[in-house]
Write a protein that binds this DNA or RNA. Sequence first.
DNA 1: TATGAAATTAAGAAGAG
DNA 2: CTCTTCTTAATTTCATA
Lengths: 152, 152
Amino acid sequence: MMFDEIDIKLLGMLQNNAKLTTKEYANNLSLSVTDVYERIKRLEKTGVITKYVALVDKKKINKSHVVICHVKLAQHNKEFLMQFEREVLKLKEVVDCYHISGDYDYILKIYVSDMEAYREFMVTKLTTIQHIGSTQSAFVIKELKNTTAVAI
Amino acid sequence: MMFDEIDIKLLGMLQNNAKLTTKEYANNLSLSVTDVYERIKRLEKTGVITKYVALVDKKKINKSHVVICHVKLAQHNKEFLMQFEREVLKLKEVVDCYHISGDYDYILKIYVSDMEAYREFMVTKLTTIQHIGSTQSAFVIKELKNTTAVAI
DNA sequence: TATGAAATTAAGAAGAG
DNA sequence: CTCTTCTTAATTTCATA
């Protein structure tokens, strides 16, 4: 699928605020409502836009502590990888999980209420998963950027 | 602000799909439309819900490569930190940036189209920022989870 | 531009504590 | 009796063809 300048601007707007009316997008783009409406439908139908979601303020729901946890497995056979992945995906505190190249095998982003909750998470959840070789946790001192909007 | 069970379920639904009608949320929760409508408004007014956004499929916009980059500064005085932060936030490829504890100072998540684009990003953008001591890049082999929904 | 659906608002009714 | 939630309906706004 090809995007023109207008698609790119429109996607930028939708990624920042999906609650404007079609008319408002149309005005910002100097286009007709129908034109913008059909562009949005096309972006949805072709799977460029996957869904619309509400974003929540972590502080307001008492999940303001972010921890980045690096995980190394004891061994790297397929069974171990798959078991770890299956188990880690069950943990609701884990919002991101990437299998990565380099010294560590996985990098996780974890939201918790405080340090004690993180300790509890480590002791009763993460480290009970089989085949973990080692972990290293880095606490987030400041979140400078955390955006869902991808620049094209 | 306090949440009851219904608020928590509603927030879960809104974080997964913000495009249902109030009536559909109400049916799922066995509540009246007005009650759900007012709960949503309250969540918005109190800042629990910060905004509504469209999520985009990275593959469809040619940004399917994810790189986690660890950055260490040459020195840790306030001026160096602030200058680095100001500059790194200008880079549109960077979707996440955290100041962290531990061996490295910052961890970045970067979206690019391919390895060559990452090389270009490193050479012409990231490493031109002053005061960087060292960087280490980990390429994402598989994205297992990347969610905007925070479990309460 | 025209139609229908949905959001929004307001008022009164019903039920719980 | 009061507080909350439900019901209903009127109005407005918007998506959609």
